[in-house]
């Protein structure tokens, strides 16, 4: 590692440093969600039966659909990087656009899902929820917080990719200088990874 450290001094642009910085940032996201997963794990352990019952409210189909949507968006994200590296700016832009579109569809699904639950009265502070068991209250508390925070990240990711599209258009991101798109991609994939864990924990335990 030490020998590589020296390159930085001479090259003005240090892609390696940018990537390291991004990865460290991803770790902060990882432990941010990690805290929530810790809470989830403990409550699931102490309220097993309640969690099973509460999870029956979740629609596995929508969950699985959203998983597929996010996985596919991850694919288009990485393809956009490949495209720009191959030199086809238009294709890269197309893939970035599709990624944002999938993000949007994901959120739309999420919106319908949330409204459905809220319609059923399973929302924080509602009398219906408060009359249920403690495990139910905790399950839905975690459900809203975790998917909500995740959704927030999807929105941020979409904004980031939109900025990347602009950069691509303006030739800030080019065939030989695409580190910005690359780290934006890392962020998008992390969102995907978090969903990969959220999906079984909320939809598949009933």
């Amino acid at each position: 590692m030490s020998s590589e450290g020296n390159v930085a001094v001479h090259v003005h642009r240090d892609d390696e440093a940018t990537k390291l910085g991004m990865w460290l940032f991803l770790f902060t996201e990882l432990t941010l969600f990690g805290g929530l997963f810790l809470i989830y794990a403990v409550y699931r352990f102490t309220h097993q039966a309640d969690f099973h019952i509460a999870a029956q409210n979740m629609d596995t189909f929508i969950g699985a659909l959203n998983t597929i949507i996010l996985l596919t968006s991850s694919l288009t994200m990485v393809l956009s990087i490949t495209a720009i590296r191959r030199g086809s700016k238009k294709l890269s832009l197309l893939f970035q656009g599709i990624t944002i579109f999938f993000g949007f569809i994901f959120l739309l699904n999420k919106y319908f899902e949330w409204s459905h639950e809220i319609h059923l009265g399973n929302f924080p502070g509602s009398e219906i929820l408060l009359s249920k068991s403690q495990g139910d209250i905790l399950f839905f508390g975690l459900y809203y917080v975790m998917t909500g925070l995740h959704g927030l990240h999807v929105i941020i990711g979409m904004i980031v990719i939109a900025i990347m599209m602009r950069f691509t258009l303006k030739n800030v991101i080019t065939r030989n200088n695409n580190i910005k798109l690359e780290v934006a991609g890392l962020y998008w994939h992390l969102i995907d990874i978090i969903w990969i864990f959220l999906f079984p924990l909320f939809y598949l335990i009933s």
């Binding site: 941010l32 990690g34 805290g35 929530l36 809470i39 924080p124 508390g141 917080v145």
Partner: peptide, 27 residues
């Protein structure tokens, strides 16, 4: 640091929206 970040955020969420996370009265 992110772990305290999320924990403090949860207290805020709990205070504002009455989401059951740590409050014993909500389990």
């Amino acid at each position: 640091t992110p772990i305290i970040g999320i924990t403090l955020l949860l207290i805020i969420v709990e205070r504002v929206f009455r989401v059951g996370l740590f409050d014993p009265s909500l389990g």
